[in-house]
């Protein structure tokens, strides 16, 4: 029950790395190294030990001008306390799902929620189209509406096995198990090397890992 909103009333910095290590797949050293990254991102605009949406976008795109449907969606999913900012606990718990050692079911669940834009418990055709169009716009690619529609037709032919015009969690699971590449962006190899990427954590380390 990582990141249970009621579990911790106060946002935690790095007061208890061992507790966070128990709640996530990270070791204590990795939590401490991850905190170095968190400090960097959270001090980019306002140095308050919290990541706001602007800082999140800045870290993702290196510019705060970029409007992104997906950056917004990812931020909202990270923000499990739904207060518009990310504390270190939320950041670590969410990134834990992206760790190569995290259970695939957690990755499937997170990706489903990511694509279920309206949070209705299923992914509908209109949402898929919105996301396809957003991706194409973002990358400056131009596909005709007919081509986009045919891509979506094909996808639903395969994914929507119950033929009700939407993709529910079970159908999503079956689809990604057939196409593991759809979960590729749910695994960050960087997280395996986080202690070597941010070696300065050793200067602040509170424990012998």
């Amino acid at each position: 029950n990582c990141c249970d909103a009621d579990l911790y009333k106060q946002p935690r910095g790095l007061e208890d790395p061992e507790a966070l290590a128990r709640e996530t797949v990270f070791s204590v050293s990795e939590i401490e190294a991850l905190y170095e990254l968190f400090k960097k991102i959270s001090s980019a605009v306002i140095d308050d030990g919290l990541i706001n949406k602007e800082e999140f976008q800045l870290a993702l795109f290196k510019t705060n001008k970029k409007e992104s449907l997906f950056a917004d969606r990812v931020f909202d999913l990270f923000d499990t306390k739904h207060n518009g900012i990310l504390d270190f606990e939320e950041f670590a718990c969410a990134l834990s799902i992206f760790h190569p050692n995290s259970p695939i079911d957690d990755k499937i669940e997170f990706s489903f929620q990511l694509y279920d834009l309206k949070q209705q418990g299923f992914i509908e055709r209109q949402e898929v189209k919105q996301m396809v169009v957003a991706t194409l716009t973002e990358s400056g690619m131009n596909l005709s509406d007919d081509v986009i529609e045919s891509i979506i037709d094909k996808t639903f032919e395969e994914a929507d096995t119950k033929h009700d015009g939407k993709i529910d969690k079970e159908e999503w699971r079956n689809l990604v198990l057939r196409h593991p590449s759809l979960l590729k962006n749910m695994t960050l190899q960087y997280l395996k090397d986080i202690t070597t990427t941010f070696p300065s954590f050793v200067f602040h380390s509170q424990v012998d890992d």
Binding site: L60, F61, F70, A71, M131, S139, V147, T155, N185, L188
Partner: peptide
């Protein structure tokens, strides 16, 4: 022409979904 790419494959190419960028902070 029929297109072979899955819509979600295309979506997963979005930069906003590539959290690896966070690590170049």
């Amino acid at each position: 022409q029929p297109v072979a790419m899955n819509a979600f494959e295309l979506i997963s190419l979005s930069k906003g979904l590539n959290l690896g960028n966070l690590f170049d902070a």
